Amino acid sequence: MGQEQSLAGKVAFITGAARGQGRSHAVELARRGARILALDICEQIETVPYGLGTSADLEQTVAEVREVGGEIIAVQGDVREPADIAAAVERCREAFGVPDIVVANAGINSQRGEEPDPHSAFVDTIMVNLVGVWNTVHAIAPLLIERGEGGSIVLISSTQGLNGRGGDGSGAATGYTASKHGVVGIMRSLMGWLAPHSIRINTIHPAGVPTAMVAHEEMMNWFANNPEGGNMGNALPVPMLDPIDISRAVLYLVEDSGRHVTGVTLPVDAGFTAK
């Protein structure tokens, strides 16, 4: 039970938690004793060509966290809206206290074969993937400073936050790459502010993970239209990573193993960015 309960007494605030990577992060942190506040929009965004997580998906996250013995509160809310983030943080404080761990995971990727509205796709992607991360960190970091007990913030970026592959001039592809680079900017900008308070902030950069964001017909159409830019091309002989691979990186950063790690852009990408 020792290692299993390495996060006992900790509280984790996770966005985009209804399914995919977010659900995996919630379950794995709960497995190690963290209490979970799981936030997800559970509504469709018009420019997104695949179905976003639903309230039923979020309830499945709740069920899976409870299956491993975890405590969880699920909240529906939009990371683009500061009021929704504030309400979720307040729910967390009332039930569990100030979060010790923040995993800003919520994100969209609206790439498709034929883009009907590049401007809207760009703006929506920036708002969710970048402004949503800022809203999340901005709502919680001052509370961590005030509490004075440190903390760990993990921002889920992408290999597209370290390079520019895949750009085809579309609003979605440009917005995705720009937003994921911007997440690194948020991390680097805030690292020096947070470090004196023993609050660590890092980014993780996954290669392709077969979640609903990637595994849908419109994305396959985009790959077909962009055979070079869309090449997943991992160096290791694996086509894609699993959500658990990213969750293990999150665990490294939020557990004692990462207690002296801050300001790091951590690729979990099977060598994709090194090629």
Rank of each mutant, 00 (worst) to 15 (best):
R91F: 03
S158L: 07
A56E: 15
H197R: 07
G97K: 12
A106Y: 06
V209L: 07
V89F: 02
M220F: 11
G233W: 02
M213Y: 03
M213I: 15
S198T: 13
G258R: 05
T265L: 11
A141T: 05
A178F: 07
E81Q: 14
L144K: 05
A56H: 10
P99L: 12
D100N: 13
R66D: 09
F272Y: 09
V133Q: 03
S152V: 04
N234F: 08
A17F: 00
M219L: 13
T203P: 03
S189C: 12
V102P: 01
E46S: 15
M213E: 07
A104R: 01
P99W: 06
A88N: 04
A106F: 09
G192E: 01
K10H: 11
G107N: 11
D84Q: 04
H216F: 06
E255G: 15
A87N: 09
Q76T: 14
A83Q: 14
W134T: 04
E81R: 10
E114H: 14
V131P: 00
T265E: 15
A17Y: 00
I41W: 00
R91H: 10
T15E: 08
V264C: 05
I73E: 07
A195P: 02
D117Y: 10
I45R: 11
V133P: 03
R66A: 13
P227S: 07
I244D: 07
S179C: 06
Q160V: 06
S179I: 05
A34C: 05
I101P: 01
A274Y: 04
V68T: 09
A86K: 11
L253P: 03
D84A: 08
V184C: 09
A172S: 15
A87H: 14
E115W: 13
L253M: 09
V27P: 06
S120N: 12
Y252P: 00
C42D: 03
A274I: 14
W222I: 05
P206W: 05
H205V: 08
T136L: 03
A235K: 12
F96L: 06
